[in-house]
């Protein structure tokens, strides 16, 4: 009887915790299906549509961005990021979120409940909980603030700069590339001078951040 109860409990926990995530439309190298759903949900709650920056967190491609970041990280850092997503996604199964039906994983809560859960982490009197919140919010903010539309809206998108070619660039290949691929020659060297014009609001944006780029 006890065995049956334990098996049922495990099955219930398994269903609640790990099943039922939507199939992602993108292939992720590092993010698991549930993590991608969590990242998109948390980013949507952290950055709702409207306000000073119209774009919502669900529109910036947070999951693909964090997948790229995880891919660029060392295994130990990746493990910490996996743990962070797992923790916040499932903590509300133990410490219930606000309102009716609050004992569900984060991605199954209503947006108001999700915001309540995040505020609970943010305002906790326990430093460790606040640290978890700051870590998560930092990652979500990175994902949100990398989007060209968001940066344009804030007026802080990178400007176009005619990158100078200095003498060192004559021997510096792209990372991982062979020196034979270096495109510069001596005649390209144009080390910056002191009389160059500072950038200003009228300076053109970098092509990747210009209006028609996204």
């Amino acid at each position: 009887m006890t065995g049956l109860f334990v098996a049922a409990l495990i099955a219930w926990l398994f269903t609640r915790a790990l099943l039922g995530y939507p199939k992602p439309t993108t292939h992720y190298r590092r993010l698991l299906r549930g993590e991608a759903a969590f990242v998109e949900a948390a980013c949507g709650v952290m950055f709702p549509a409207g306000g000073a920056i119209p774009l919502a967190g669900t529109e910036v491609g947070a999951a693909p961005y964090l997948d790229r970041m995880m891919d660029a990280s060392k295994p130990r850092i990746r493990a910490l990021m996996h743990s962070l997503f797992f923790l916040v996604e499932h903590a509300s199964l133990v410490f219930r979120g606000p309102g009716r039906g609050g004992r569900r994983r984060f991605t199954r809560l209503d947006p108001e409940q999700q915001l309540g859960v995040l505020r609970g982490w943010e305002t906790s009197s326990f430093f460790a909980r606040r640290l978890v919140f700051v870590s998560l919010r930092s990652l979500l903010a990175m994902a949100y603030l990398q989007h060209p539309s968001v940066l344009r809206e804030l007026g802080i998108a990178p400007m176009a700069i005619d990158t100078s070619v200095c003498e060192a660039d004559l021997w510096m290949p792209r990372v991982g590339a062979d020196p034979s691929t270096i495109p510069w020659s001596v005649s390209d060297v144009n080390t910056p001078r002191d009389d160059v014009e500072p950038l200003n609001l009228d300076s053109p944006l970098h092509p990747d951040y210009a209006e028609d780029s996204s």
Partner: peptide
Amino acid sequence: AVRLPGSGMAFKERLG
């Protein structure tokens, strides 16, 4: 953004 307080719309307004 790490330094700003808040979450949700309040956080977003601060970014603004």
